[in-house]
Each structure stands twice: as structure tokens, then as C-alpha cells.
Computed example of a mutant assay.
Amino acid sequence: MQDWWKTTFPKGRQLLKITDANGYPVSIAYGEKGTGKPLFLIHGIGGWSYNWRYNIETLAKYFRVICFDAKGYGFSDKPLYRERNDHQIIEFKRIISALCDRSAIVLAESLGGLISLAVAEDYPELISELIVVNVPIFPDGLPHWGMSLLSQIPLELLQTSDLCRIPSLFAPLVKEILAIERRSVLFDPTKFTEKDAYWMSYPYIHFPGTLTKVAEDIQIAVKEIQLNQNYQPNLITKIQKNLAVIKCPTLILWGQQDSWFSYKHGEKLAKLLPNSQLKIIPNCDHDASSGSPEAVNAAVLEFLKSRPND
């Protein structure tokens, strides 16, 4: 099958070296297309840049679209050491700073949206406009059985499995499990093709460490949710309490049929963000970027075209 990076981006897959939240050098895989103001596309947990396959071409007609795989995901490095709970916030900030000399637009889905809200709070100079999609800002728990399972398996066991290449030995099963999971968050499951199954499962099968790093972020999320529920200091509460400091224009997109987080969360978020607007997308589940790409693209462009150029 043709290299997705080469067929999607003029320069194919590029590598960016950053210092991660632990102080170590890591390589971040990214691709970019188009010219003009930078627009970052931020994937959610378990995904990678391929999640934005139906958005890149359309948005690149108007902006310099930049997709990257977060550390531990997709084609980026997967270090063996354990992570800080805020590592993605720190690393996203460093990626934007390395690739841009001006403030950027950020379009972020699911966990990527939560990370982007934190970056907008802590580093307001980096983000000029923000679009978040189905963001887990008020989580009651893990939304999926697969996440619950991974949250209970010791990371050392998963790491051993990864290093022994167990996922590659059971590649057809891994691909099928991921296909079932991805179809479960689409309003129309038939939109998820065999090609999609191939590419979404590719990092898990071919890059040891992927499963471990995804599970580690899930386990970090579980701890943060538990701390939040017990009224102890945690990142979720910190982000919630600081929403009012976000001054950049913000568009909140939410799937009306989101089976992970109710659109009611979007309504609550809109009330707490002073310069925001909410748009509910009908016939749309949690995976909006690939399940309802036309609606997402149209809403994003309408929002951004209403903004003055800089």
C-alpha cells in the first residue's frame, strides 16, 4: 500500500527534534501542506495524523496545515521511560514554538482538545484561534471498555509484550479489534474502510511501544479523573478553573450523537469560555473528523473566515 505520508504531504513525513517533558531528545513525525497562517491538527488518544485524512486537503487550500503525531503515537518516538502527567501540554507547546514564528490556529479533537485548552491557558501567545471537537473537559470516567482494560494492565507487562513484538504476531487480530473500536464511534460505521483499518492499526503492529504509550496516557487519565472526583489537585480541575483566562476566539464543535461525551458538556463548556461559540453537528458520533468531515471542515472555515486576517 502506498505511503500515506508521501501521498498526503508534498514533502512526505518529516521529523522534528524536540526536548520532551522529561528533558530527553525525541523525534516527532509531522507533515505539512498549504501556505499561509499555520493551522495545527491535533489528534486524540490512540490516534495519529491519519485521523485527519479527510480534513487536510480542504483546509490546506486556505492555510499552512500541520499534522503531527504526539510522542508515543503514530510514527513519533516511543521512549521506554514513564511520563509526567502534563507531558503532552509541554511537548505540544515546544512543537508549536519549533515550527512557527507566529501564533497559530489549533484544531484539536478529543484528548487533543483538552491538551489544547491547557496550552491556550498557559501559553496564550501561541494560539490565535482555537477549535476543539468533542473534548473530554468534564469526564466522569473512561468512555470505552478497551480503555478500561488497558488501564488495568501493568505497563511493564504491556512493554514486554511490545518489545517481544506480540502485536505484530497477531496483526490480523489487532487490526480487527481497532476496526471494531473505530467503527463504534462513527455515526455511519460503513465509512471506516479496509484501508482505514490498515493505517489506523499500522503503528501498533509495526512500531514497538505504541500500545504501551497509549495505555500509559490512559492510566494517567484514570488517575487524574480519580483525583478530580476526590477533590484533590489534578490537571482536569486546573484546566476547568482556568477556562476564563482563554481570550482567543474559540469554536466548540460537538457531535449530537457523541457516545463518549454528551453534547451537554459542550453547552457547559461554552458558558465557561468567554469568547466562544458552540456548534452541534447532527448525525455525528465522537469521531467527528473522519465521521463528519464535511460538516467539520465547513464549520471550521466559516469560523476562521469570519476572523480578520493577520
Rank of each mutant, 00 (worst) to 15 (best):
K71W: 01
P38L: 10
G291Q: 02
P203M: 04
A108C: 01
L59N: 07
E176H: 14
S110P: 04
S49Y: 00
Q159D: 15
I45A: 11
L163R: 09
E32A: 09
G36T: 08
Y73V: 03
K195A: 13
L178D: 07
T250K: 04
G31K: 08
K11F: 08
D101K: 14
L186Q: 03
F170H: 10
L117K: 03
W5T: 07
I127D: 01
Y198H: 13
P124A: 05
E194Q: 13
L278V: 10
Y62N: 13
T193F: 02
S128Y: 07
L173S: 14
L117F: 11
L272A: 14
A70G: 12
G46H: 05
Y202H: 15
K241M: 14
A108G: 03
D86C: 01
A295W: 03
L243M: 05
L178C: 10
V214C: 08
F68C: 03
C100Q: 04
F9H: 04
Q277P: 00
Q219V: 06
Q240E: 06
Q152H: 12
I42C: 07
L235W: 12
D258W: 06
I89W: 10
V185H: 04
I220G: 08
W5R: 09
S184C: 07
G36M: 11
Y73H: 15
A108N: 00
G209M: 07
T160N: 06
Y198S: 01
G74E: 10
I89P: 03
Y263F: 13
R307Y: 12
I28T: 06
I56E: 01
L301Q: 10
F68Y: 15
I180N: 08
L272S: 14
W260S: 14
S128M: 04
S290H: 12
I105H: 08
L211V: 14
W254F: 06
K78N: 05
G141M: 02
M1N: 01
G112P: 09
D217F: 04
D188M: 03
D122F: 03
I105Q: 00
L149E: 01
Q257M: 07
Q159V: 03
P172C: 04
Q277S: 14
K93F: 11
G12K: 08
A98G: 06
R165E: 15
I280A: 09
I42H: 09
V135Y: 06
F187Q: 07
N85P: 03
F63R: 07
A221Y: 14
A221G: 05
L111T: 13
S128D: 14
A298K: 13
K241E: 15
D310V: 07
K268W: 04
I42Y: 05
Y30V: 08
T8V: 10
C164G: 00
K17M: 04
N297I: 08
D196L: 09
H265W: 12
